[in-house]
Design a protein around this nucleic acid. Structure first.
Lengths: 88, 88
DNA sequence: TAAAAATACTCCATAGGTATTTTAT
DNA sequence: ATAAAATACCTATGGAGTATTTTTA
């Protein structure tokens, strides 16, 4: 599981759709689809299911997303601390 | 900053040497050197300095390593939860 | 001066892209 | 019926390797 996969999954949840999430992430939809499929295979659970207007998390998926969301916050705290210099 | 870079940096600190760390990580020493150089460029600080028998963290490096160590613990907690099924 | 890090390349796996088909309501 | 996801395929970047040189006390 990489940081990128975490960000992808959280963005899809937030957008409720692969298409919208792919725009937000500046990648194309098939790239996002395959990235999530790879993640689902790695962790051994299905995170999202299709709907006619996007995707929604499964029950297991909702729990997983909660876990990685809290983890991602810790990552951001460290990142912010060491990103400052570059943007000046 | 990727998880891999975090693991690499923490392993080098632990081993006190790029060579020993590369063995532990099952990669070769130049790969580790360039991975750390990339990380140092990204965060804008020098993490390690050479010694005749390996490397040691700089003052800034020591602080950075502390930050990522605590972050890495959170990552492992999530990982362990979703790794179980695969190893049975 | 010798053990370890850094440099200079080469190669291939995979992240990301394009085009198209399938699906769910 | 239609918007969005999935599939199939292609490309190129960078992660990892080999061989060699440089460095530090």
């Amino acid at each position: 599981m990489t940081i990128k996969q975490v960000i992808y999954a959280l963005t899809i949840e937030e957008c409720g759709s692969m298409n919208k999430a792919s725009e937000k992430l500046y990648i194309v939809q098939p790239t996002l689809t395959s990235a999530i499929q790879e993640l689902e295979n790695e962790i051994g659970i299905k995170i999202f299911v299709r709907t006619p207007r996007g995707v929604k998390p499964t029950q297991e998926g909702t729990e997983f997303l909660g876990d990685i969301r809290s983890f991602y916050k810790h990552y951001n705290l460290v990142m912010q601390k060491y990103d400052g210099e570059k943007n000046t």
